[in-house]
Design a protein around this nucleic acid. Structure first.
Lengths: 208, 208, 208, 208
DNA sequence: CATGAATGAGTATTCATTCAT
DNA sequence: GATGAATGAATACTCATTCAT
């Protein structure tokens, strides 16, 4: 929620020139992350790729960490947008239907930019300010929990916290792993994975 | 499966002196990883911590990557030992019982050295030779799949590959996340998590 | 004697707005020098502290050196004012009395802004235009020499140049060192130091 | 007396190869200080001048400050050696003779390497670990004070602390300023300055 | 085999200064 | 005049790795 001061952009960048520079830097960072990996993403290289001087980079970002954090934030926002949209759609639908839709949304989300997602997941050290990555997880957890609350009558005597943890963690891991490491599971009909994963979750939620 | 040549120890280390040096180095690496993090784990520092000259380090390991890989391998072996032992115990037991035991084993495994586990999970870039981390996942997958084969009669018309993927991925994520990020879920009786996770899995497996 | 062109303010600053800007900049420089030290006194920081844009800073000063030079000049002028006033007072008094008064004035001068004096003395590299620091020394030398001329009858067969050099250099060093490094010598009665220093000088001047 | 840890050489450098490297670095630092000034004495330049890799520089010194501190220390030691030798010679001589000899020694000391002395005096910021420069002053003070103690019978009712402060500070300033800024005072017979300075001091010491 | 001195490419970061708006 | 975004040369420092002893 609150990013540490060292990852906060240094300027408001409200003017259009600044805005363009900042955007160019964040985009360049993402591009380099994908193309060269985290370790080779030096500030000098990022500035060059952005077509911006190294001085300007430091005018707007306190360091490499902040740049990567910006990319991470933007990516997580994009993912959450997909999830949020799906949740809005299924607000009134029964869990059996909702779960299906949510799993599909999770896969869709992970497919927004799988290459970036992979680098972000595999190479970014979860340390310092970058540890805020689980933000995505936390947000999804919160959203799904409130969905469950709205559907409490369909559920057994479940601890909602625990149930949300179980479902969100599982589905996130399944879709992430499938997209990143088992793309074979997604060939042809994605339906197989959606089917199984939603069955996993609905079976669990309709408990005694 | 087979680690790349650049991560293989350079010598067989059959003599006891060599063996001791290698062990000292791997242990020093693990200690530094936990204490200082991956980024500060320089080869010089590792050698010093191990009480070995930097020259000797390179006599036995081709580089930093190989050292970390060795730590990773050792840690994964330790985890798998726990899982394997559990699987041996429940070979004859029905799935309802087996799943419980396996979830418990997964938690137990993640608790062997949570600090090291965390560093390994959060700070080691999954790149180059270090990408072999999913080894653990793969091994667990294989083992669990053959357990399912032995219990096919208890299962519905499931695709075993998919089923193993679903179960192993979910349980791994749940136990990992619980141990690393939600230690609150493990206070007092671990049983709650074990209960829920095994219900998730057994519900799924006793399918259509 | 004549400051190099690159340390001359760029504008006459006759208008009141300009004047205010220049003053703000010089004062900001002095404040930052004292608070953060010479090395951290960047032009951008000075401009910010002065509440002026960096562009305006360069409108009035050709660079950092000129700003520091201005501070230096102002400080030296302040010191010399004290000395000059003392000399005016003792113009007619015999050397024994005058020396006392002058030593007291020197201490008083060094106490105007000891913090700034210290930074100026310890951190400003005597290079380029900043080498003009000895200006103070030169002015004091000149003034004291003419005082001696006016009192030649009280003196022996002294070389006035040499005598002025000896006296001014010694008293400057004694008062400077006392104020900066031996504040213990000034506690309570400053009189002890004044007494000794003026005895040093008068003893020397009343030579054969 | 106790240099801060960040200026302590990193290794003992007892082996001859190390010793040579360290010496080369310190000498290169002194040479660059004189030739290019403090601000242009970058670590990379020093290493190059020393014919040593930048890595080796950091193997033995924690940074630029430590290098300069080493030069400073060596220079101060050289100065003090001259002073100490003079003091040993005049241990038994009366003050009138001793003072003369000491002033001569002070001039001699300042002439060991006037160029380096100037840079050290004018460009080195007295900040951080480099503030220890007054070490020279302190040592000289201590030595001279004990000389005065041994000759107390020749002195009036002087406060030895104050007397040592007055004499050492004055003579240091006079010889320093003469050598650095008034070389004209030293042309031909140095005797004039020696004569005057020692008269200044002896006159003061043979007090009330 | 062991040692540890030496290497140097590579990285993050600062800051005086310019100039288009 | 005033502004502040942009510049980029320069700097300190790290660390994996080699190799002569």
């Amino acid at each position: 929620m609150s990013s540490s001061p060292s990852t906060m952009p240094r300027k408001k960048a409200s003017q259009s020139r600044s805005r363009a520079t900042v955007d160019a830097l964040v985009e360049a960072t993402a591009r380099i992350l994908v193309r060269d990996g985290f370790d080779r993403a030096s500030t000098n290289r990022i500035a060059e790729e952005a077509g911006v001087s190294i001085g300007s980079l430091y005018q707007y970002f306190p360091g490499k960490e902040a740049l990567v954090a910006a990319v991470l934030q933007r990516h997580n926002r994009d993912l959450m947008d997909v999830v949020r949209r799906a949740l809005a759609e299924i607000a009134g639908a029964p869990i059996a239907v909702g779960a299906r839709r949510l799993v599909a949304a999770a896969i869709e989300a992970h497919r927004i930019d799988p290459q970036l997602h992979r680098v972000l997941a595999e190479q970014i050290p979860r340390i310092g300010a970058l540890a805020e990555v689980e933000l995505f997880h936390r947000d999804a957890y919160r959203l799904f929990r409130s969905y469950l609350e709205d559907h409490r009558d369909e559920l057994g005597a479940l601890d909602l916290d625990m149930a949300a943890f179980i479902c969100v963690t599982s589905v996130e891991a399944l879709t992430h792993t499938a997209v990143i490491h088992r793309s074979d599971l997604l060939t042809g009909a994605v339906t197989a994975l959606i089917e199984e994963a939603s069955r996993l979750v609905t079976g669990y939620l309709r408990a005694p």
